Computed example of a mutant assay.
Amino acid sequence: MGVRRLAVGLLAAAATAMLLSGCTGDGRESDCDSAGGIVECAPEQRSAAPKIAGELLAGGSYDVVDQRGKVVVVNFWGSWCAPCRAEADDLENTYQATKDAGVTFLGINVQDSRDKAIAFEEGRVSYPSIFDPGSRLALDMDIPPNTIPATVVLDREGRIATVIRAAVRQEGLQPIVERIAAEAPAPAGQR
């Protein structure tokens, strides 16, 4: 049991280090603020998100590139995850409160069966979710599947602005989303 706990701790530390270096333009972790499982990067220190595309639970396909110009809140979740169930209302309420400000939400379902994922979402959230049972998108984002739920906020240019490695509450998430939505776009030469 002790070895397993140590291995999980080392994996989480390594993932956090990779995530922090991904937020910075020059690899300096100190350029991003990190506290309480939340990593926030200033606009000039943000890096582009990896490709986020796939098959939607409800059918059809999704590519985050089509959302350029909007703030995109990406939430990694599973029907088997108790904290995911606890945060679902807060995510939906934040989505409803911010969508008129050019904000959209996307769920990414991991390590699940399609039927369980669809049943979980029904009546809980109105935004789409990508079906990613192999957790490929989470791993591409340096979010190990054992840290689900996780929420990533992309700015209007598709860059990683904030990563939250815990269940979210509306009173914590909404101010972050509103702050990123209120940012002025970067001048063309700085994109």
Rank of each mutant, 00 (worst) to 15 (best):
S47W: 00
V153A: 12
R85E: 13
C32G: 05
A101F: 09
Q67A: 09
D140Y: 08
L154S: 11
P128F: 11
A35P: 03
P144W: 00
I108D: 13
S126A: 08
Y127W: 14
L57I: 13
R124Y: 08
A49G: 04
T162P: 03
P133G: 06
I164G: 11
Y95G: 01
D132S: 07
R85M: 14
A117C: 08
D33C: 05
V64C: 01
D140F: 08
G36S: 13
Y127K: 14
F105W: 07
N75H: 03
Q67P: 00
V72E: 07
I52T: 10
Y95C: 03
R156K: 15
L154D: 10
G69Y: 14
R124D: 11
P144T: 03
W80E: 02
R114M: 08
D132M: 04
L56N: 11
D63C: 01
P144N: 01
K116W: 08
A82S: 05
L106F: 13
A42W: 05
P50L: 07
Y127H: 14
Q45S: 14
A86L: 06
A35T: 14
V153L: 12
Q45F: 08
N93T: 07
A53L: 01
P149G: 11
F105P: 06
A35E: 15
V110N: 12
T98N: 07
V73G: 13
G36K: 12
V74H: 00
D155H: 10
G69R: 09
V163N: 10
W80C: 04
G60H: 11
G102C: 05
C84E: 02
R159C: 12
A53N: 02
D89H: 01
D142E: 01
R124P: 09
S61A: 06
D132A: 04
I38P: 00
Q96V: 15
S126C: 03
G37A: 09
N93A: 14
G69L: 08
V73S: 12
R46V: 06
I130Q: 02
C84I: 00
A82C: 00
T162A: 15
N146L: 15
D63S: 08
A166E: 13
M141T: 04
L137W: 09
K99M: 01
A88H: 04
V65E: 15
G158T: 01
C81N: 01
C32F: 00
I118P: 10
E40K: 15
G107I: 15
I160V: 15
G69P: 12
V72Q: 06
V153M: 10
R85Y: 10
R124Q: 11
V39I: 15
D132E: 04
I52M: 02
A88P: 00
N146C: 07
L91R: 03
V74M: 01
D100G: 13
N109L: 05
I52Y: 06
I160R: 15
D100Y: 09
G69H: 10
V125N: 10
G123C: 05
D140M: 13
A119I: 03
C41P: 00
G37I: 12
R85I: 12
L56V: 13
S126M: 08
K70P: 06
E122I: 04
R156E: 11
I52W: 05
A138M: 08
V64Q: 09
A150Y: 01
W77P: 06
P128D: 14
D142H: 10
G102H: 07
I164V: 15
L57S: 05
L56A: 07
S113C: 00
R159N: 14
R68E: 02
F131W: 10
F120A: 06
L139K: 10
S61N: 08
A150K: 02
K116G: 05
